[in-house]
Protein backbone atom coordinates (compact mmCIF):
# COMPACT_ATOMS: atom_id res chain seq x y z
CA UNK A 1 0.00 0.00 0.00
CA UNK A 2 1.32 3.43 -0.94
CA UNK A 3 0.96 6.01 1.79
CA UNK A 4 1.00 9.69 0.81
CA UNK A 5 0.22 11.83 3.85
CA UNK A 6 -3.09 10.50 5.20
CA UNK A 7 -4.04 8.66 2.02
CA UNK A 8 -3.48 4.99 1.37
CA UNK A 9 -3.45 4.16 -2.32
CA UNK A 10 -3.35 0.76 -3.96
CA UNK A 11 -2.10 2.12 -7.27
CA UNK A 12 1.46 3.42 -7.54
CA UNK A 13 0.65 5.34 -10.69
CA UNK A 14 -0.46 8.96 -10.51
CA UNK A 15 -1.80 10.58 -13.64
CA UNK A 16 -1.69 14.20 -14.84
CA UNK A 17 -4.83 15.56 -16.52
CA UNK A 18 -3.39 18.04 -19.03
CA UNK A 19 -3.45 17.93 -22.83
CA UNK A 20 -5.73 14.97 -23.50
CA UNK A 21 -7.67 15.02 -26.77
CA UNK A 22 -10.89 15.39 -24.78
CA UNK A 23 -12.20 15.14 -21.23
CA UNK A 24 -13.91 11.85 -22.18
CA UNK A 25 -10.60 10.30 -23.19
CA UNK A 26 -9.04 11.65 -20.01
CA UNK A 27 -11.78 9.93 -18.01
CA UNK A 28 -11.23 6.63 -19.79
CA UNK A 29 -7.46 6.89 -19.41
CA UNK A 30 -7.75 7.43 -15.66
CA UNK A 31 -9.96 4.34 -15.44
CA UNK A 32 -7.57 2.27 -17.55
CA UNK A 33 -4.59 3.39 -15.47
CA UNK A 34 -6.19 2.39 -12.19
CA UNK A 35 -4.73 5.62 -10.76
CA UNK A 36 -6.28 6.74 -7.49
CA UNK A 37 -4.84 10.23 -7.60
CA UNK A 38 -4.58 12.76 -10.42
CA UNK A 39 -2.83 16.11 -10.67
CA UNK A 40 -4.62 19.14 -12.07
CA UNK A 41 -2.88 22.26 -13.28
CA UNK A 42 -4.62 25.40 -12.25
CA UNK A 43 -4.58 28.60 -14.20
CA UNK A 44 -5.48 31.69 -12.31
CA UNK A 45 -7.96 32.46 -15.01
CA UNK A 46 -9.98 29.25 -14.83
CA UNK A 47 -10.13 29.28 -11.05
CA UNK A 48 -11.39 32.80 -10.63
CA UNK A 49 -15.14 33.32 -10.65
CA UNK A 50 -15.59 29.60 -11.11
CA UNK A 51 -14.98 30.05 -14.83
CA UNK A 52 -13.59 26.57 -15.30
CA UNK A 53 -16.50 24.79 -13.62
CA UNK A 54 -17.21 22.60 -16.63
CA UNK A 55 -13.76 21.04 -16.52
CA UNK A 56 -13.46 20.96 -12.73
CA UNK A 57 -16.67 19.01 -12.39
CA UNK A 58 -15.33 16.42 -14.86
CA UNK A 59 -12.23 16.09 -12.67
CA UNK A 60 -14.31 15.73 -9.52
CA UNK A 61 -16.45 13.09 -11.19
CA UNK A 62 -13.36 10.91 -11.71
CA UNK A 63 -13.82 9.86 -8.09
CA UNK A 64 -10.09 9.89 -7.27
CA UNK A 65 -7.91 12.06 -5.04
CA UNK A 66 -7.08 15.38 -6.68
CA UNK A 67 -3.61 16.84 -6.33
CA UNK A 68 -3.79 20.46 -7.49
CA UNK A 69 -0.60 21.56 -9.16
CA UNK A 70 1.05 24.97 -9.26
CA UNK A 71 2.39 24.28 -12.78
CA UNK A 72 3.94 27.19 -14.59
CA UNK A 73 4.44 29.32 -11.47
CA UNK A 74 7.74 31.17 -11.48
CA UNK A 75 7.71 32.81 -8.07
CA UNK A 76 6.97 31.91 -4.48
CA UNK A 77 4.07 34.33 -4.34
CA UNK A 78 2.49 33.00 -7.52
CA UNK A 79 2.83 29.40 -6.32
CA UNK A 80 1.31 30.19 -2.93
CA UNK A 81 -1.64 32.02 -4.52
CA UNK A 82 -2.23 29.13 -6.91
CA UNK A 83 -2.08 26.64 -4.01
CA UNK A 84 -4.80 28.61 -2.25
CA UNK A 85 -6.89 28.51 -5.39
CA UNK A 86 -6.47 24.72 -5.61
CA UNK A 87 -7.62 24.32 -2.03
CA UNK A 88 -10.67 26.47 -2.75
CA UNK A 89 -11.64 24.73 -6.00
CA UNK A 90 -11.05 21.14 -4.87
CA UNK A 91 -11.38 21.35 -1.11
CA UNK A 92 -8.10 19.54 -0.47
CA UNK A 93 -4.99 20.41 1.53
CA UNK A 94 -2.83 18.53 -0.97
CA UNK A 95 -0.73 20.58 -3.35
CA UNK A 96 1.90 19.60 -5.88
CA UNK A 97 4.33 22.46 -5.60
CA UNK A 98 6.15 23.57 -8.72
CA UNK A 99 8.26 26.69 -8.80
CA UNK A 100 9.81 26.87 -12.24
CA UNK A 101 13.25 28.40 -12.47
CA UNK A 102 13.89 28.39 -16.16
CA UNK A 103 11.63 28.24 -19.18
CA UNK A 104 13.73 26.12 -21.51
CA UNK A 105 14.14 23.12 -19.21
CA UNK A 106 11.29 23.88 -16.78
CA UNK A 107 13.85 23.05 -14.10
CA UNK A 108 12.60 23.73 -10.58
CA UNK A 109 13.90 26.84 -8.84
CA UNK A 110 14.90 24.91 -5.74
CA UNK A 111 15.48 28.03 -3.64
CA UNK A 112 11.97 29.34 -4.33
CA UNK A 113 10.65 25.81 -3.89
CA UNK A 114 12.00 25.46 -0.36
CA UNK A 115 10.67 28.89 0.57
CA UNK A 116 7.21 28.24 -0.86
CA UNK A 117 7.14 24.78 0.79
CA UNK A 118 7.86 26.38 4.16
CA UNK A 119 5.05 28.91 3.74
CA UNK A 120 2.53 26.31 2.60
CA UNK A 121 3.45 23.68 5.23
CA UNK A 122 2.98 26.30 7.92
CA UNK A 123 -0.45 27.07 6.50
CA UNK A 124 -1.38 23.42 6.87
CA UNK A 125 -0.96 22.29 3.27
CA UNK A 126 0.32 18.81 2.55
CA UNK A 127 3.00 19.62 0.04
CA UNK A 128 4.32 17.40 -2.77
CA UNK A 129 7.37 19.34 -3.98
CA UNK A 130 8.59 18.86 -7.56
CA UNK A 131 12.35 18.85 -7.07
CA UNK A 132 15.62 17.65 -8.54
CA UNK A 133 17.60 14.67 -7.20
CA UNK A 134 19.76 17.01 -5.10
CA UNK A 135 20.23 15.60 -1.58
CA UNK A 136 20.59 18.91 0.20
CA UNK A 137 17.50 20.36 -1.41
CA UNK A 138 15.63 17.23 -0.35
CA UNK A 139 16.84 17.71 3.21
CA UNK A 140 15.70 21.34 3.23
CA UNK A 141 12.29 20.37 1.86
CA UNK A 142 11.87 17.80 4.62
CA UNK A 143 12.94 20.38 7.20
CA UNK A 144 10.33 22.75 5.76
CA UNK A 145 7.68 20.16 6.60
CA UNK A 146 7.25 18.15 3.38
CA UNK A 147 6.62 14.45 4.00
CA UNK A 148 6.65 13.38 0.35
CA UNK A 149 9.24 14.22 -2.33
CA UNK A 150 8.76 14.30 -6.10
CA UNK A 151 12.17 14.12 -7.78
CA UNK A 152 12.30 14.54 -11.54
CA UNK A 153 13.31 11.77 -13.92
CA UNK A 154 14.25 14.30 -16.60
CA UNK A 155 12.79 17.65 -17.75
CA UNK A 156 8.99 17.93 -17.90
CA UNK A 157 7.52 16.57 -21.11
CA UNK A 158 10.91 15.43 -22.47
CA UNK A 159 10.18 11.71 -22.29
CA UNK A 160 13.85 10.97 -21.67
CA UNK A 161 13.36 8.66 -18.72
CA UNK A 162 15.63 8.59 -15.68
CA UNK A 163 18.44 10.95 -16.62
CA UNK A 164 20.64 10.65 -13.55
CA UNK A 165 20.41 7.12 -12.20
CA UNK A 166 23.29 7.63 -9.80
CA UNK A 167 21.67 10.74 -8.30
CA UNK A 168 18.25 9.11 -8.00
CA UNK A 169 19.69 6.00 -6.34
CA UNK A 170 21.63 8.18 -3.91
CA UNK A 171 18.47 10.11 -3.05
CA UNK A 172 16.52 6.90 -2.49
CA UNK A 173 19.28 5.50 -0.29
CA UNK A 174 19.71 8.70 1.71
CA UNK A 175 16.01 8.98 2.68
CA UNK A 176 14.75 5.39 2.71
CA UNK A 177 11.57 6.18 4.65
CA UNK A 178 10.30 9.21 2.76
CA UNK A 179 7.66 8.38 0.13
CA UNK A 180 9.03 9.46 -3.23
CA UNK A 181 7.16 9.85 -6.50
CA UNK A 182 9.25 10.16 -9.64
CA UNK A 183 7.68 13.01 -11.54
CA UNK A 184 8.42 14.34 -15.02
CA UNK A 185 10.35 13.02 -17.96
CA UNK A 186 8.97 9.49 -18.08
CA UNK A 187 8.35 8.64 -21.71
CA UNK A 188 7.53 4.94 -21.95
CA UNK A 189 6.35 2.24 -19.53
CA UNK A 190 9.85 0.75 -19.18
CA UNK A 191 11.03 4.04 -17.65
CA UNK A 192 8.24 3.81 -15.08
CA UNK A 193 9.05 0.18 -14.30
CA UNK A 194 12.69 1.12 -13.82
CA UNK A 195 11.85 3.88 -11.33
CA UNK A 196 9.71 1.55 -9.25
CA UNK A 197 12.27 -1.29 -9.47
CA UNK A 198 14.79 1.13 -7.93
CA UNK A 199 12.53 1.49 -4.92
CA UNK A 200 10.72 4.70 -5.74
CA UNK A 201 7.24 4.49 -4.30
CA UNK A 202 5.29 5.72 -7.29
CA UNK A 203 5.49 7.56 -10.59
CA UNK A 204 3.52 10.48 -11.98
CA UNK A 205 2.85 10.49 -15.71
CA UNK A 206 1.15 13.04 -17.90
CA UNK A 207 2.50 13.77 -21.39
CA UNK A 208 3.52 10.16 -22.07
CA UNK A 209 -0.13 9.16 -21.73
CA UNK A 210 -2.02 12.25 -22.91
CA UNK A 211 0.07 12.67 -26.06
CA UNK A 212 0.16 9.00 -27.00
CA UNK A 213 -1.75 8.11 -30.15
CA UNK A 214 -4.08 6.07 -27.93
CA UNK A 215 -3.97 7.57 -24.43
CA UNK A 216 -6.29 4.93 -22.98
CA UNK A 217 -4.14 2.07 -24.28
CA UNK A 218 -0.98 3.78 -23.01
CA UNK A 219 -2.53 4.34 -19.57
CA UNK A 220 -3.14 0.59 -19.32
CA UNK A 221 0.43 -0.13 -20.43
CA UNK A 222 1.81 2.13 -17.69
CA UNK A 223 -0.39 0.45 -15.09
CA UNK A 224 1.10 -2.93 -15.98
CA UNK A 225 4.66 -1.58 -16.01
CA UNK A 226 4.31 0.01 -12.59
CA UNK A 227 2.77 -3.15 -11.14
CA UNK A 228 5.59 -5.25 -12.65
CA UNK A 229 8.28 -2.86 -11.40
CA UNK A 230 6.90 -2.92 -7.87
CA UNK A 231 6.55 -6.71 -7.85
CA UNK A 232 10.18 -6.95 -9.01
CA UNK A 233 11.32 -4.57 -6.28
CA UNK A 234 9.53 -6.61 -3.63
CA UNK A 235 10.86 -9.86 -5.07
CA UNK A 236 14.44 -8.59 -4.72
CA UNK A 237 16.25 -8.31 -8.06
CA UNK A 238 19.53 -10.16 -8.56
CA UNK A 239 22.80 -8.26 -8.58
CA UNK A 240 24.28 -7.74 -12.06
CA UNK A 241 27.74 -9.31 -12.60
CA UNK A 242 30.47 -8.79 -15.12
CA UNK A 243 30.91 -12.43 -16.15
CA UNK A 244 28.53 -15.10 -17.27
CA UNK A 245 27.33 -17.55 -14.65
CA UNK A 246 25.88 -20.78 -16.04
CA UNK A 247 22.47 -21.43 -14.61
CA UNK A 248 23.00 -25.18 -14.67
CA UNK A 249 25.87 -26.58 -12.62
CA UNK A 250 28.87 -27.85 -14.57
CA UNK A 251 29.84 -30.50 -12.04
CA UNK A 252 28.70 -33.91 -13.04
CA UNK A 253 28.64 -33.23 -16.79
CA UNK A 254 30.30 -35.89 -18.84
CA UNK A 255 33.69 -35.03 -20.31
CA UNK A 256 33.70 -36.00 -23.93
CA UNK A 257 37.08 -36.06 -25.58
Amino acid sequence: MLRLYDAELRSRLLLGTARYPSPSILTEAVKASGAQAVTVSLRRESGGERAGQGFWSIIRDLGVRVLPNTAGCHSVKEAVTTAHMGREVFGTSWVKLEVIGEDETLQPDVFGLVEAARVLCQEGFEVFPYTTEDLIVAERLLEAGCRVLMPWGSPIGSGRGLNNLFGLKALRARFPDVPMVVDAGIGVPSHAAQAVELGFDAVLINTAVSQARDPVGMAGAFAQAVAAGRAAYEAGPMEPRDLAVPSTPVIGKAFLG
Binding site: E45, A51, G52
Partner: peptide, 11 residues
Protein backbone atom coordinates in the same frame (compact mmCIF):
# COMPACT_ATOMS: atom_id res chain seq x y z
CA UNK B 1 -7.51 26.75 -25.58
CA UNK B 2 -8.40 27.42 -21.96
CA UNK B 3 -10.89 25.47 -19.88
CA UNK B 4 -13.06 28.44 -19.01
CA UNK B 5 -16.54 29.57 -19.94
CA UNK B 6 -15.93 33.27 -19.35
CA UNK B 7 -15.15 35.33 -22.46
CA UNK B 8 -12.90 37.57 -20.41
CA UNK B 9 -10.19 39.66 -22.02
CA UNK B 10 -6.96 38.15 -23.27
CA UNK B 11 -4.24 37.59 -20.67
Amino acid sequence: MIESDQPTRIT
